[in-house]
Every structure is written in structure tokens, then in C-alpha cells.
Amino acid sequence: MSTDTDHGLEITGDVADDQRRDRRIRRFLFGCTSITVLTTIAIFAVLFDNTWGFFFDATFSQWVRTSVLNLGVEGLTQRVSFIEFFTDTEWRPSHADDPRYGIPTLLAGTLLITVGAAFLAIPVGTAGALYLSEYASVRTRKYLKPTLEILAGVPTIVYGFFAVSFVTPVLLRPLLEIFGLSIGRNNALSAMVVVGVMTIPMVMSISEDAMNAVPDELRNGAYALGASKYSVSMNVVLPASISGVFASYILAVSRAIGETMAVTLAAGATANFTGNPLAEVQTMTAYMVTSARSTALVGSITYQSLFAVGLALFLITLVANLVNDYVKRRYREVYQ
């Protein structure tokens, strides 16, 4: 055995110290990583706990502490019925005499603006992506791509200001007057326009990535058959990259749903159950920021309603993100 000590390969000395430090750091880094998981759990827990407090007269944790742990389960007094929450078409939680809590009102506002924004961002973004990947010269790309990055980097509050100071009075109002229509300072249409504009870079850059991943052999095959650039773009590139392009749409929609400041400034603070783009509407997010001011009282129904709306928003964007994840994974399988 004495010869064994000579090879110096055991875990001793300097190496052992280095390895111990390595393990210590690995543990620290893992700790940091778990914080991200904790954040997700915390978001969900906080939203759920307070949403419980919206429907009943105590938050979930209060209820567990006081009723379940101490004296056996006490009956819960429900203050907002689920049926009202899911079906009522009025939303005015702070109303003194007749508060109403119908989330469809806010959902309609969010949906209206999201659909409108998608109608702008999807065609423009897809066409722009095709231009970038099939037509643009290297030089054009060199300038266009950073410009798009800037467009994506403009704070959303700035887009909101742009909507009320330019889009509505300078672009939309004169245009609508031609048709004999009029709009107020706040309207869903201007929100659609700015949210559409701010999601264009997202659609464009993700779609373009997908189009670039289409192998050139496919294009050349079509060109060899005498196809025009138009038909290669529409019949080869677009179909081949469709899942990636689709993923960009989902991401843009998810972004539009969660968009807050531009929508608050542009579309206003009046909850309206309507599909009229010229009307003033309130989205889920807009409700949250406009009401956060008037909710000093923790536990008040208005305060709790923020979380109920927040939970609904969180779940909707979660679903969108999961779908996007799924689509993206499928599209990775195709060419890699």
C-alpha cells in the first residue's frame, strides 16, 4: 500500500481545497437558481391568496390560520359570487351603492385591443420578415434590424403618450371624420394601433429567424423550376417556417394582453362591455394601474380585486407562453 500514496491522485491537499471551493460555489449558484423557481411560486401564491380574499371575506392564508388551524373549519362568507365574476358585464368594484364585479367587461377590453393589435402586427410583421429574409440587401438589413431593436426598446409609456398626442388627434380623427365618425381622447382604436406597432418588431424578428432557418436547398429547388421570388416566398419559405412564424404571433398576442401603460393612456379607464373600437374601454391591466392608486386599504374589496384580475391575467399569459413553448419545440425539431 505504501506505493499507493506516491501517485498523489487522492482527494488531498491543494486539489481538495479547490474542489471544496468548487462544491461550495456550486451550492451557492444552485441557491440563486432556486430563487427563480421561488419567484414563480410566490407570484402564484400571492395572487391566489389575495384572490381568495376577493371572493371571500378573508385571504386564503388568514382563513387557514384562523379557522382551520384553531377551531375547526368555519363557514366562509362569500362576498363576490363566482357566477357574477364570470358572467356579469359590469365592472365597478369601487362603486359606493352598487358595486359590480364582472370580469368579462375587462376581458372584453383586453380582447378587443389584442385582436385589433394582432390585425396590424401580424400581417405587417410577417411581410416585413419576408422582406428581411428574402429581399433585403445586406446593407438594408444592417440598418433595419437595429431600428427594429430601438422600436422594441421604446418604453410603453412613450407609446401611450404617442397615442393620445398624435395617433388619435392627428391620424385617426381626421381619417374617421371622412366617414362621418368621431372619437374621443381615449379610444380602443388608438390603443390597437400603438400596441400593434410595438409588437411588430417581435413578430418580425422571430419570424425572420424561422425563415432564415429554412435551408437554401428548398429555395433553390423551387428557383430551378422557374419559380419567381414571389412564389418562393409564399409557397416555399412561408410554409416551411410556419410554426416559427406562428410562435411569434402567440408571443405578440401574449405581449399585447399584458401590455399596460400604452393601453391605459390610450384606451382610458372606463370599463365598457363593448366591441366598438371607437369607444373608451378598460383592459385588465389598465384597471390594475388605475385602481392601485385608490387602494390604500389593504383587505378592501378594491385592493383584493387587483389580485383577482392579476390572477386571471397571469393564467392567460401562462397559457399563451406554454403554447408558444410547445410550438417552438416542435419547430426546432424540423431543421436541427
Partner: peptide
């Protein structure tokens, strides 16, 4: 009982 790091130092 062999540490690959120690091994690679040799």
C-alpha cells in the same frame, strides 16, 4: 478515491 482534477494536474 481518485480526483480527476488531481489526475489532470499530472
Amino acid at each position: 478515491d481518485v480526483d480527476p482534477v488531481a489526475l489532470r494536474r499530472k
